[in-house]
Amino acid sequence: MTIVKRSMITAVCVALTVVLPMAFHAVPNAGSVILPMHIPVLLCGLICGWPFGLACGLIGPLLSNLFTGMPPMAALPAMLVELAVYGLMAGLLMSCVRTRKVYADLYFSLLVAMLAGRIVAGMARALIFAAGSYSMAAWTTSYFVTSLPGIAIQIVLLPSIVFALERARLIPARYPKEIVLDGSPGLDSSE
């Protein structure tokens, strides 16, 4: 994909970090359970690479705060760190991990990115934003226990979205099927 296309995809992902939380506001507890703001950021990292994922994770929450007041100013810095790490890590891992199985790549990158984001955000909170008043227990509760359903939901949603986009030919396939000229199976089609 060209830089222009990556930029435009990043732009719509940023717009969706503002729009999706609004759409889910009607569903009770959706914000903390479904974590709608994470989806576009992770997706942007997975598809466009780490620089764009990082940009999306930084610009998205800022614009969202400006337009909807969510996340509130107080929660914004930690949120920025968390989402920036998601976008960054999702992109980095997707470019490093190539198992030749799209599913495996996606699951692995997602899980590690989500883990990394939570750890870094927790550390940032403990050390910078709320130094002293932040305990291990509070971190575990807020990042894992309450958001566990969110993690599970994202593990289902994100690969489905990636595949839908591939089928709609809006993003190139990660492992394009090899064109076989002589009729015998190619080296890479053994899976």
Binding site: M8, L20, S160, L170, I171
Partner: peptide, 20 residues
């Protein structure tokens, strides 16, 4: 959530594609 989220992303990406 799939019936909501997938069309939203597909259409958003389509707009991105057209604009690019």
């Amino acid at each position: 959530l799939l019936p909501l989220v997938i069309p939203v992303f597909v259409n958003a990406f389509k707009r991105a594609d057209e604009l690019a």
